[in-house]
């Protein structure tokens, strides 16, 4: 039984890994396509049908480009930077519940790699670790633009982690658990989605997720107009590719997190009224979950081609003077409402 369990988890890990890499790959295409459509043009459409092979070509190009490590760079750390970035991006998806249970033969397979009871905090910790990849890479490049980008990334991610954490506390007060699978299971049925109880919290969380992923309008660490390329100015070839990849994987994981925490995860309306077997419900649930994730990824890109980049002081003002007080107010509000509900309507 133990061997089967390990095998099952191993297969799941490989699948999750592959899926997140493929999604990250095709996010690059989607980004450019969506940018094209929003600017009334086609986007890449030469490689394959409608440009479908474009990410493969880009990947091939990344692999065959010359790798340059600057003479003044700190070699081991220069290599460690992108490695760390991609590792932290990949392991953060471990606690996301992708679906309910599948029955294969007489085994119940839970579609979640690890159901640890501090799942939300785990993601948080891994995301917090992600900034090391950028910082180490930026410092090891021995370039002032890289260093500035790295420093911006560090201060930005620390600032927005606080807001993110505080917005999550309000959510956790409602769900009363830190386990991802339980949080998702609680949201069965359209009206039970957490977005209806925590709209402000969701808004704060989403803003902070944008900042944590270094996406526009918070992409100051790699702001081309000021910092050449930010922390990856000196990077070339697949090392640059790894940084890009980790950014897109982070975006995918953040989307999955938002879908799971606030939009019911794999739950979809009328899932128990269709009279389907458990396996079919699970499969449809996984599809629904991915639909939500793609929706969020689209939203990420939609925002990117709508909003301009913030100035650095605006970024800090928004984080510290708007989002954190708002998140604290949200916690107090949630507490008061929970108390009233428990006292008078219990």
């Amino acid at each position: 039984m133990e061997g089967a369990f390990i095998l099952e988890k191993l297969i799941l890990v490989v699948i999750v890994f592959t899926v997140s890499l493929v999604i990250a790959m095709y996010s690059t295409l989607a980004e450019r396509k969506i940018a094209g459509f929003m600017q009334d043009r086609h986007g890449p459409n030469r490689a394959g049908f409608g440009g479908l092979l474009q990410p493969l070509c880009d990947g091939g190009k990344f692999f065959f480009k010359e790798e340059i490590i600057p003479a003044g760079a700190h070699r081991p750390l220069f290599i460690l930077g992108p490695t760390l970035a991609i590792i932290t991006a990949c392991i953060s998806s471990a606690v996301i519940p992708w679906g309910q249970t599948l029955t294969v033969g007489n085994r119940e397979v839970v579609l979640q790699v690890a159901d640890i009871n501090v799942g939300v905090l785990y993601i948080f910790g891994v995301v917090a670790l992600g900034v090391y990849g950028i910082m180490i890479g930026g410092w090891a490049s021995n370039n002032k633009f890289s260093l500035l980008g790295a420093i911006r990334a560090a201060s930005q991610s620390i600032s927005y982690e606080i807001g993110m954490g505080l917005s999550l506390i309000a959510l956790l007060m409602v769900t009363q658990t830190l386990s991802m699978s339980e949080i998702v299971a609680q949201q069965s049925g359209f009206v039970n989605w957490n977005i209806w109880v925590q709209p402000i919290g969701f808004l704060i969380f989403m803003t902070c997720a944008f900042a944590e992923c270094n996406r526009v309008p918070f992409d100051l660490p790699e702001c081309e107009t000021e910092l050449v390329g930010g922390y990856h100015t000196e990077y070339s070839s697949m090392k640059l590719g790894l940084y890009m990849f980790s950014e897109y994987i982070n975006m995918f994981v953040s989307s999955a997190l938002m879908a799971a925490l606030y939009f019911g995860g794999y739950n979809f309306p009328f899932m128990h009224d269709l009279g389907l077997s458990q396996n079919w419900i699970t499969i449809l649930g996984v599809l629904a979950f991915f639909l939500k994730i793609f929706g969020f990824i689209f939203f990420f890109m939609w925002i990117r081609w709508t909003l301009p980049r913030f100035r650095y002081d605006q970024l800090m003002n928004l984080g510290w003077k708007m989002l954190i007080p708002l998140a604290i107010a949200n916690i107090v509000l949630t507490g008061v409402i929970t108390l009233i509900k428990d006292t008078y309507f219990a």
């Binding site: 459509f37 929003m38 600017q39 009334d40 043009r41 086609h42 939609w302 081609w305 709508t306 909003l307």
Partner: peptide
């Protein structure tokens, strides 16, 4: 203002593309 901006970009998303391939 952000919502307004999003509205503008999504309108362009569904517009006919004038580019000639």
């Amino acid at each position: 203002a952000i919502a307004k901006g999003l509205g503008i970009t999504i309108r362009h998303f569904f517009k006919k593309i004038p580019t000639v391939k």
